[in-house]
């Protein structure tokens, strides 16, 4: 079943066409990566799909619900972990998780169970009482993902989740993302090609708001005759194969 169906989605900012007539479908439980250079339209696409930004044209259906007409309902089953760590800096890790539980209207029992579950999943036990604003970038990202998972989303948007992290923190986050794979649909944007290759079921490459290609990592490599997604990406974006 399709989790996301995008039909001719566009976004115009004054004289800039950030997303140009984007159409694609993403299956349930799929980990789908959006790749592109800066300004390719990845974050704008995520903003539109997560109802943060209204499209200038087209529509998208998340689990069959329109982002234009049913945005309030769509918000009830999606979650976003934005590019920067989106945490309340003055609150502890536990309080940040509690905040998200409260916003989603959980009972006290469910709140405790959910916080314990996510603390274990993201290994936050050691920092649970520390202020979020005092944590390192890697721990803030973990917390940010935990906060996104609180609502038990069916669709999770991860906007450059490992940006600026060291090798160890990145590899640990990969493990967490792998653990989520299959249970929920994940849309990932990243600048790291090896990350997309290691994690994704399918990859879409965008340039100047347009979709250049969308396929499995192996199929993209095969079609370009390259042995890595990075080389395939460079070839596609430079216009050798479109």
């Amino acid at each position: 079943m399709d989790s996301i169906r995008i039909e001719g989605l566009s976004k115009q900012y004054r004289d800039v066409l950030a997303v140009d007539n984007l159409s694609l479908t993403i299956k349930e439980g799929e980990l789908f990566s959006l790749l592109g250079l800066n300004g390719a339209g990845k974050t704008t696409t995520i903003k539109m799909l997560s109802c943060l930004s209204t499209p200038s044209g087209g529509d998208a259906y998340l689990l069959g619900k329109s982002i234009l007409r049913d945005s309030a309902y769509v918000k009830s089953f999606i979650a976003v972990s934005p590019q920067e760590s989106a945490v309340a800096p003055g609150l502890s890790v536990h309080e940040n998780l509690e905040l998200m539980c409260g916003i989603h209207g959980f009972t006290k029992e469910k709140r405790c169970a959910k916080i314990n579950e996510l603390t274990a999943l993201l290994n936050l036990g050691g920092v649970i009482k520390r202020k979020a604003g005092k944590l390192s970038g890697g721990w803030q990202r973990r917390l940010s993902i935990a906060m996104a998972l609180i609502s038990e989303p069916k669709i999770l948007f991860l906007d450059e989740p490992t940006l600026g992290l060291d090798v160890i923190a990145r590899s640990e986050l990969w493990e967490i993302i792998r653990a989520l794979k299959g249970n929920i649909t994940i849309i990932l944007t990243t600048h790291y090609m090896e990350e997309a290759e290691a994690l994704s079921d399918r990859i879409a490459i965008m340039k100047d708001g347009r979709l250049l290609t969308c396929d499995t990592p192996d199929a993209i490599k095969e079609s370009t005759g390259e042995n890595s997604i990075e080389n395939a990406f460079i070839k596609i974006v430079k216009g050798a194969i479109i």
Partner: peptide, 13 residues
């Protein structure tokens, strides 16, 4: 001006 607000905007608040 923070991503925290963007997160909250994607909730049913």
């Amino acid at each position: 001006h923070s991503s925290f607000m963007h997160r909250l905007y994607t909730t049913p608040m």
